[in-house]
């Protein structure tokens, strides 16, 4: 009995953590290359609506995921053209991308309100994925395993490969990287595209896996929490994993408290917790490091032009 409850809590926790983990990991790579893309929430919404629309019309969640990925990349490219090629202010461009994502997703999604699609299911056979306790390991969908694999992959890429070193160099000292002969802008385009792809998938997690039903602004600020998580992680993938699952735990608590009918706390107060937790975490991070340096890439958010 208790195992069943623990397993079900764990499943909720994993499901709540995965979309922010995906989006935050993509943003981490973009920021490592020196680009601050505040449009995560917008890219997630683009992915969510594209994923839902394609999954609904084609009947295939796989095609839906692919569409979400491409929509995220497309949104990221709009950001890249403005912020990297035209040297527009990165903060303002990221905000514009979020406002765009909100508008575009509610416009496209207007035709899908209330429609449902089959949920993104577990990838292992029923014998494993529906086993009373083995499902804690084998009962997840493909994006959960992908997100965990990507944590290891990105960590390895950044720390152990030559390309990863170049990407970090571009983020730490763009002028030197340029002088050595690395294509700073091209590398940043690639990093931003990767961020867009993962944000798109993270957004699709809401519309395809969590609640396979379209609702406006269904990401509810998780893109912004992902941005905060990157700061929390001190730009290290391993810590990002810990942070995302901590946030997943906070959100699971919120859901469990609601389900258990906790009535000494208003539901609105419970709904505030992820946002308050984000502020608390950012604050504690800063108190923990009185040096004033948060290990941010040195060129984060600064425009670069070769001429």
């Amino acid at each position: 009995m208790t195992t069943a409850i623990l397993v079900s809590i764990l499943m909720t926790l994993v499901a709540a953590s995965t979309p922010i983990l995906l989006a935050a990991l993509g943003e981490l790579v973009a920021e490592k290359a020196g680009v601050l893309n505040l449009g995560v929430e917008g890219m997630m919404l683009c992915g969510a609506v594209a994923g839902f629309a394609v999954a609904f019309s084609s009947g295939s969640t796989t095609l839906g995921l692919l569409a979400a990925l491409l929509a995220g990349v497309a949104a990221a490219m709009v950001f890249a053209v403005l912020a990297l090629s035209l040297n527009a202010n990165q903060v303002a461009t990221g905000l514009a991308l979020t406002i765009f994502g909100i508008g575009a997703s509610s416009l496209i999604g207007a035709g899908f309100v209330g429609r449902t699609i089959p949920r993104l299911g577990p990838i292992f056979p029923a014998g494993l994925s529906e086993h009373p306790w083995l499902r804690a390991i084998f009962g997840h969908d493909i994006l959960v395993y992908l997100s965990l694999a990507l944590i290891i992959g990105v960590g390895y890429f950044l720390r152990r490969t030559r390309s990863g070193l170049i990407l970090r160099a571009v983020g730490e000292n763009d002028a030197s990287a340029h002088a050595i002969g690395y294509p700073v802008i091209a590398i940043r385009y690639a990093a931003v595209a990767f961020g867009g792809a993962l944000a798109g998938l993270g957004g699709a997690y809401f519309s395809l896996a969590l609640t396979p039903m379209w609702a406006e602004r269904l990401t509810a600020g998780r893109g912004w929490i992902a941005l905060a998580l990157v700061v929390f992680s001190a730009w290290k993938p391993g810590r990002l994993l810990v942070g995302a699952y901590l946030f997943g735990a906070v959100m699971t608590l919120e859901l469990q408290a609601k389900a258990a009918g906790v009535n000494w706390l208003a539901p609105e107060v419970l709904a505030m917790t992820p946002y308050l937790a984000t502020i608390a975490v950012l604050t504690m991070m800063s108190i923990g490091r009185r040096t004033g340096r948060l290990d941010a890439p040195a060129c984060l958010g600064k425009p670069f032009s070769a001429t």
Binding site: F100, G103, A104, S106
Partner: peptide, 10 residues
Amino acid sequence: TGLFQALLLF
């Protein structure tokens, strides 16, 4: 409306 406003900012 929101989409037009976002396009304008872009």
